[in-house]
Design a protein around this nucleic acid. Structure first.
Length: 412
DNA sequence: TCTGGGGTCCTAGGACCC
DNA sequence: TCTGGGGTCCTAGGACCC
């Protein structure tokens, strides 16, 4: 019998902001940006939630609901640091830890009773330690599967611990809305409602074959989930084998929609450089380059190309993303641009001798660029391609005379 | 309600091969 | 040249999560 913990930080981004600015405590706070900006709420304090503000809501809407809220920009670096601190506490507790996102983690505490005592006691011990060492609140769910542990931590919020004993899973789940099942969103919920299924208990009573027929592979997994099992999908597998990312992407929404070709080219270059930099950080090579574009009417398209040889070089990403863009752009105003690297692998594969030399020089140059970025922040150096836009010739310059842009280290 | 950014997984059609 | 059945790869889109 497994013992799984799911730990979820409470209002994580808001709580971190409060650490840096204690005056925010207890007030309605919205993290995500200013209310006149294009964007959505990343996190809302409990005081703001009382007004109906919640994450993923447009900032403008949040402002209408709660004009007295304090709107603050997000600080990804701070969140990452706090997340790492949480991870260290968890690691000191159990070797089998898996960060599921920046603010939640699974722990496998199976067979740890001699060290930590009964699960409920262990959970409270962990809760205390997190609070003491990070000054942040969290909630913990304890159960025999990831699925039930996750649902528990959700119900334990804020700042609580909830444990479901072995054998009690089905009874615990039965009265809950199907929406509580991770993976059941708006669409699946509607599909289930259409079949008259509202509670997890309704789902558990159904025939597996009916669900499979109606919802495919996902339906089969749902049947297991309704019974509290980590059936199918993301939930399978051991806790703790943290693997490499499967894709790396960056995207940006313009403050105002644009048809400015130079701005578009510059943006694609900038996004490509960000993607390339992270590929090299992970020592990964991408075989597929994908761009994403969104027009003013919010219609969204992706176009991708798979290369013969995997790459981690900015020039390749810039070239491919620009090519994809210009052979698909309708000329309408653009709202969003994205560059995505997929099909990631550990090696680049064979490279022709002729290409090899140019390749080597670029590799060395980018290594230097990354080191400077590491020291002074991501905005400190940029290849010329990101600056003016449309400078295709420049992209092909040898690295010896790379045009660099230098900024003060404090710029970020 | 005028809708971010970073991910994962799944589906489905077509190409291509045996 | 009235035609099957798999398997795999590529591409595009979509649901969902935080």
């Amino acid at each position: 019998m497994k013992i799984i913990f799911h730990l979820d930080m409470d209002a994580f981004f808001v709580s971190v902001e409060e650490l840096y600015n204690p005056e925010l405590k207890g007030k309605p706070v919205v993290v995500g940006g200013q209310p006149n900006q294009r964007g959505v709420v990343s996190a809302a304090s409990y005081a703001a939630r009382k007004f109906g503000v919640h994450s993923a809501m447009p900032l403008r809407t949040a402002y209408k609901l709660c004009p007295q809220a304090i709107f603050v920009e997000g600080h990804p670096k701070r969140y990452k640091e706090c997340s790492e601190q949480v991870f260290r506490v968890l690691r000191s507790f159990s070797p089998q830890v898996e960060m599921a996102s920046i603010d939640e983690a699974y722990l496998d505490l199976t067979g740890s009773e001699r060290l930590h005592g009964p699960p409920m006691l262990a959970a409270h011990k962990l809760h205390e330690q997190i609070c003491e060492r990070t000054k942040l609140n969290c909630s913990i769910g304890v159960a025999t599967s990831r699925l039930v542990a996750k649902i528990c931590s959700d119900l334990a919020k804020p700042n609580g611990v909830l444990c479901i004993l072995p054998g009690e899973e089905a009874r615990f789940l039965a009265p809950l809305d199907v929406r509580k099942i991770p993976g059941v969103g708006k669409v699946t919920e509607k599909g289930l409602h259409d079949c008259g299924i509202r509670k997890i208990g309704d789902l558990a009573r159904l025939d597996e074959s009916f669900l499979e027929q109606r919802f495919g592979k996902w339906g089969l997994a749902l049947a297991g989930k309704a019974r509290g099992l980590d059936a199918g999908g993301w939930f399978d597998g051991q806790i703790g084998d943290h693997d490499e990312p499967k894709s790396i992407s960056h995207e940006t929404t313009f403050h105002e929609d644009t048809r400015d070709g130079r701005l578009i080219d510059a943006t694609l270059a900038k996004l490509s450089e960000m993607v390339g930099s992270r590929l090299r950080e992970h020592r990964l090579y991408a075989r597929t380059v994908q761009i994403k574009l969104r027009y003013s009417d919010f219609s969204t398209f992706t176009r991708s190309v798979t290369l013969d040889h995997a790459t981690q070089l900015d020039i390749d990403l810039v070239e491919q993303s620009r090519r994809l863009f210009h052979s698909n752009w309708t000329g309408k105003a653009i709202r969003l641009l994205g560059v995505h690297a997929g099909n990631l692998q550990l090696e680049e594969g064979q490279i022709s001798l002729l290409e090899g030399e140019k390749h080597e020089r670029w590799k060395n140059a980018l290594g230097a660029v990354d080191r400077i970025r590491g020291k002074y922040g991501s905005g400190s150096v940029s290849l010329g391609s990101a600056m003016g836009g449309g400078f295709r010739e420049r992209v092909h310059e040898t690295p010896a005379d790379l045009p660099g842009r230098h900024r003060h280290p404090d710029d970020d």
